[in-house]
Amino acid sequence: MTMGLPCEVKAHPITGIYNGKFAVWLFLASEVMLFGALFSALVLLRAGAASWPHGYTVLNVPIGTLNTFVLISSSVTMVMAWASLKVHDFAKGRQYLLWTFLLAALFLGLKLALEYYPKFQAGHTPGHDNFYGTYFVLTGLHGLHVVGGMIVIGYFLWPGAHLWHENPEHYTNRIECTGLYWHFVDLVWIFLFPTLYLL
């Protein structure tokens, strides 16, 4: 006999939401503090620097913008995956999840091939100056979050997909939690892009 965790599908009587969603929001609160601290570091370093380059003079704005639209599109496909599962259309939901995975891969590919690689070729490594130090720390940490999201999405696309056949509501809830995380990662980029590239 197997026993599931309490309130993993139905809402908890105190919080009004299922436990997985509550846990994801707690996790995202800690993520706000992490990125908030790094944004603060950027502001302090920039305010205290004798000279600081404008992002648009040293970074590739068109590629950064393209990547922003790639991430916005991936949030749309992510939420459509969840919406499809809500109406019990697993095939469509899986298709949208696959699109989300591919868009995330495209984001990382563009970032590595057209932004990081030319910078490293030109000797603009994280140790070059404070601007590149903060640029690589912030975008690198964000990139790691994208990789983390891809691992979770990939899990639910392939090895974890069997949960749909065992408990569709539980699977749908897990996709919602993944979607909340994914939206947060995309939201961070929407703040990162103008801060680093345009100011």
């Binding site: 922003t68 949030s75 939206h183 929407i190 103008p194 345009l198």
Partner: peptide, 29 residues
Amino acid sequence: MSLKAFHVIFLTVATLFCFGFGAWGVAFH
């Protein structure tokens, strides 16, 4: 907050970003 509500917030921020970046790009050009 459900993904539905968070998506609406996300779309609001993304729309503001699009107009902000559009204005910046036109001014830059």
